[in-house]
Amino acid sequence: GETKIIYHLDGQETPYLVKLPLPAERVTLADFKGVLQRPSYKFFFKSMDDDFGVVKEEISDDNAKLPCFNGRVVSWLVSA
């Protein structure tokens, strides 16, 4: 499998796309960081919350699996 991750960088209009050679349910924050090489950023991901619906959730645990929608991951990188 392959996972497409779209990421928005510090408010830039056009998002970036990276592809990881892993199925979406196995991709972790560490996998994503390894491709990006951007150490001083906070990582937020499109996520579903039972109370609020669609939210941007910050993930900082490198072992955390990334939230996935239709085989895609959507993220926002914010300068720390």
Rank of each mutant, 00 (worst) to 15 (best):
L9M: 09
Y16F: 11
D31R: 03
K65A: 10
L36D: 08
R72A: 14
G34H: 08
V27D: 00
V55G: 08
L22A: 05
E13R: 11
V54N: 12
V73E: 02
E58L: 06
V18S: 01
T3S: 04
D49N: 15
H8C: 00
D62V: 03
K42G: 04
K56F: 12
T14F: 11
N70I: 06
R72P: 00
K19A: 10
I6D: 05
L36Y: 00
S75C: 13
L17Y: 15
D49R: 14
S40Q: 13
Y7D: 00
V18E: 03
L29H: 07
D62P: 05
K56D: 02
N70D: 13
A30V: 02
V74A: 05
G11L: 08
Y7A: 01
V18A: 09
Q37K: 14
S75M: 02
V73Y: 00
C68A: 12
A30G: 12
K33C: 05
C68D: 04
Q37M: 12
E2Y: 12
L20E: 04
N70E: 12
M48I: 11
R26I: 08
V18I: 12
D31G: 02
R72V: 15
L20I: 13
A30C: 03
S47H: 10
V35W: 03
V55M: 12
V54W: 14
F45S: 01
G53Y: 15
G1P: 13
H8W: 13
E25G: 11
V35H: 09
A30Y: 07
P67Y: 05
R26L: 11
D50P: 12
V78C: 11
P23D: 07
F43A: 05
K56R: 13
T28P: 05
K46C: 12
I6P: 01
K42S: 03
E57W: 06
L29G: 04
P15H: 08
Q37L: 10
L36F: 13
A64I: 07
A24L: 08
F69W: 10
D62Q: 05
V55R: 15
P67S: 04
F43I: 05
K42H: 12
D49V: 08
Q37Y: 11
L29F: 00
D51M: 09
L36A: 02
C68M: 09
Q37P: 13
P67L: 00
D50A: 10
W76N: 04
Y16A: 05
N63G: 10
E13I: 10
G34P: 00
D50E: 10
K42L: 01
L66C: 00
D50F: 04
F32L: 08
Q37H: 12
A64D: 08
G11R: 07
Y16W: 05
I6L: 10
P23R: 04
V27R: 01
D31M: 12
Y41V: 08
K33P: 00
A30S: 09
I59H: 04
T14M: 09
S47E: 02
P15S: 11
G71R: 01
K42Q: 12
L17Q: 15
V35F: 12
T3D: 07
K19W: 08
D51I: 10
P23C: 02
K46N: 12
M48C: 14
D61L: 02
V35S: 09
F44S: 07
K19T: 15
R26G: 07
G11Q: 08
G71N: 08
D31L: 02
V27G: 03
T14R: 13
L36N: 06
L36Q: 03
T14K: 15
S47N: 13
L20R: 02
S79M: 05
Q37S: 12
G34K: 14
H8Y: 14
Q37N: 14
D31V: 07
A80V: 11
S40T: 13
I59Q: 00
T28A: 03
F32I: 07
L17F: 15
S47I: 15
I5Q: 03
Y16C: 13
P67G: 04
F45K: 00
S47D: 04
D10R: 03
G34E: 14
D51F: 10
E25S: 11
D49A: 13
K19G: 04
V54G: 11
G53A: 13
S75H: 05
P15V: 06
V27K: 07
K46D: 12
L77K: 09
R38Y: 10
K33V: 02
